[in-house]
Computed example of a mutant assay.
Amino acid sequence: MLIRLTYISTFNANITEADIDELTGKAAEFNKRHGISGILAVEGERVCQILEGPRPEVQTLFESIRRDPRHSGIVELDVSEIDQPHFEAWGMVRRPMVDIVTLAFSL
């Protein structure tokens, strides 16, 4: 069973653009190995992310994100069963916040 999980959070103030770029690169590699795809949007310290993949893998990843000290104020917005991933070709990509909002209305 595949799911799509969407959440928002706030990065701690000491996170730099270089940190975010490194995090995104590592996430892309990890996600590809675990059948997870998604999109990450960061605007200032605010984060919105959509994760897709097998339920156990996505839930395990999300629990890891919840424990990550770089995040605070994590709120799960939605979790839905899906027939196929929308971001299948992407392990993880970073896009502007407006793109993720636009995608959310088209899913």
Rank of each mutant, 00 (worst) to 15 (best):
T24R: 08
A27V: 03
D83V: 13
L23C: 05
P54I: 04
E52G: 09
R95E: 08
P69V: 05
L23S: 05
E76K: 06
P54L: 06
Q59V: 08
F105I: 13
I74A: 07
G35C: 09
V98L: 10
Q84A: 11
S80M: 05
S37K: 00
A104Q: 10
S106T: 05
S37F: 01
E29R: 15
A104D: 08
I36D: 00
W90S: 10
R66E: 13
P85R: 11
Q59I: 09
P56C: 11
D68E: 06
I50R: 00
G35Q: 06
N31R: 00
M92D: 02
S72K: 15
S37D: 02
L61A: 11
T24S: 04
D99G: 08
E29W: 08
A27I: 01
N14R: 02
M97N: 11
E63I: 06
E22P: 01
E43M: 11
E57H: 14
R55A: 01
L51D: 02
A104G: 09
R4E: 05
M92G: 06
T102C: 07
R66K: 15
F62N: 05
I82H: 14
N14M: 04
I50G: 00
E81H: 07
G35R: 04
K32T: 04
I100W: 03
V42G: 03
D78I: 04
V79E: 15
E45F: 15
E43Y: 08
T24H: 00
L77H: 05
G73I: 05
S9Q: 09
S80Q: 12
G91H: 10
E88G: 11
I100C: 05
V98N: 12
V79R: 14
H71Y: 10
E17V: 09
S64P: 01
G44H: 08
I65D: 10
I65P: 06
A13D: 13
V75F: 13
T16P: 04
R46V: 04
G73C: 03
L51F: 06
S72E: 14
N12E: 10
L40T: 03
K26M: 02
I15Q: 01
R94M: 14
L5Q: 03
M97S: 10
P85D: 05
K26F: 03
N12W: 07
A27E: 01
T10V: 12
E43L: 10
D78M: 11
M92T: 03
V47W: 11
Q84G: 14
Y7K: 03
H71D: 06
P69E: 07
L77M: 09
E52C: 13
L2E: 00
D19H: 15
V75A: 15
T16D: 04
E22W: 08
F105K: 14
I65C: 12
T102F: 07
P85S: 14
I3F: 02
D78E: 12
